[in-house]
Each structure stands twice: as C-alpha cells, then as structure tokens.
Design a protein around this nucleic acid. Structure first.
Lengths: 111, 111
DNA sequence: GCGATGTGCAATCATCGTGTTGCAGAAATC
DNA sequence: GATTTCTGCAACACGATGATTGCACATCGC
C-alpha cells in the first residue's frame, strides 16, 4: 500500500461541497435528489461529487427501488487516518534522529 | 475546531507532486532549489507548492543564511489524522445505531 | 395508461490550479 | 568588487474541475 493510493482520497476530501455532502450522509443514507433539496447545488453536480467520493472509497451506492441511496464508509476514513498518523510519526522520528546526531555527534543513536 | 479548517490540509495532500516534496523533506530539511534538483519540476513550481503546504501547516520555513530551508511538521499530520478518525468513527456509530433501530424497533438503544 | 419523480448522459461555460519562462534583487564566494 | 547562487514576483499557457442547462429513459403511484 503506497501513498499513491490515498492521494485521490485526499483530493476528494479537499472540497467544501463534498464535505457538506459527507456530513449530510453522516446523518443517514440519502439519494442525490434528496441531497439536492438540502444543499445549494444541482442534483447533477451532487451526482458527480458522489462518483468522485465513490471512486475514493468514501461512499457506497445502495439501490432502493428506483432510487440510489448513498452510504458513508467511515471505516475507510479511519484506515486512511491511521496511515496518515504513521507517516507523520515516521517523519517526526527521522527528523528527531537527525537533530540528535547534529547536536551530539559522538553519541550516535543505537542501530 | 471545525471541518473547514482542515479542508485546505486535504487539498494540499491531494496532489502527487506535493507528496513527493513532502517525502523528500521527510528525509531532511531542504530548500526549493535543492528540491528542484531532485524532482522533475521547476524551482518556481516547487516554491508555489511550498507556500500551499505552509498555509496548510504541513511545512515550516527555516532561514539558513541566504537560503530558506523547509521542514515537515509531522505532528500536524498526526493531529489531522486524529480528527479524521474521530469523524469516521462518529459516522460509523450513528449509522450502526440507525441500522439497529431499523432491525429491532422494540429494542431501542440506551440514551 | 398517465403523470410525477428519480436517474443518467452530453454539451457548455467559468474558474482554478499547475507548470512554464523571464527578469530583478539579495547574499555568499572568489 | 565581480561573479555566482539563491530567492521573489509577474505574466502566460494549458489542462482539470465545479457547476450549470437540457434532454432521454426508467420506475413508482394513481
């Protein structure tokens, strides 16, 4: 699992309208038309955002008769958060080690 | 602390070039010119990316004489990850509660 | 069957973002 | 002091993206 796989996830999360869609879906499943009734954007625009969110693995379509409801996948958000935390922690460790070596050159870190 | 504050962070993380810059900085501080020597983009383009990353709180400029080195802030990445995890967990809890009520209407969840 | 509602696809438009080139200025090296 | 190097700002081209309107088709309720 490389970082390239989660770039589209962050690109999907880097938009205000998509966040309003996600928070609305966080209160329960909803269709694109239902979301269009709540948000100040067209149904077609919401549909495009939903496909972006689906390709990022953040939502899931659920057919209910003639309408297509969407469900948020909070688990995928949490797993992304775990990867983020690991990356950030790795950077912190490495920079701390560099700083320690720079300040105390005769006290190298244990291999 | 609202979600609006972390939208620019995700927008900054939703770009391949910026990730290559961040991973390069994860190995140690570097200036825009030094990064331009490693990556297949111009120094000016990298400078713009660095300002985006700085406004998102992901990097920090460090003046070293006439050159400006940049340092990654892994701690901010980790705090963002924590907020992400909390949001995803909240969605999962709420949808699980809705599903439980729908399946067992006479067994309401404890308030 | 007929109207109402929900979805899908296409075309269009405006805007933003990424990357480039070019030039000017500040600071270190010789 | 002259040259080199690093930075900063401006202007520009090009592609990507967000949002719109319009129309065609499927499905539910009467």
């Amino acid at each position: 699992m490389t970082v390239a796989t989660l770039v589209p996830v962050f690109a999907a999360l880097g938009d205000e309208t998509r966040w309003s869609i996600l928070t609305a879906l966080g209160e329960g499943e909803a269709s694109a038309s239902a979301l269009a009734g709540r948000l100040p954007v067209t149904r077609q625009a919401i549909a495009r955002h939903l496909t972006v969110l689906q390709e990022a693995g953040l939502v899931e379509p659920v057919r209910a008769g003639r309408e297509v409801r969407y469900r948020v996948l909070g688990a995928h958000l949490s797993s992304t958060a775990r990867q983020l935390d690991r990356i950030g922690a790795a950077w912190e460790r490495r920079l701390a080690a560099i700083k320690a070596i720079a300040e105390h050159p005769d006290h190298p870190e244990q291999p």
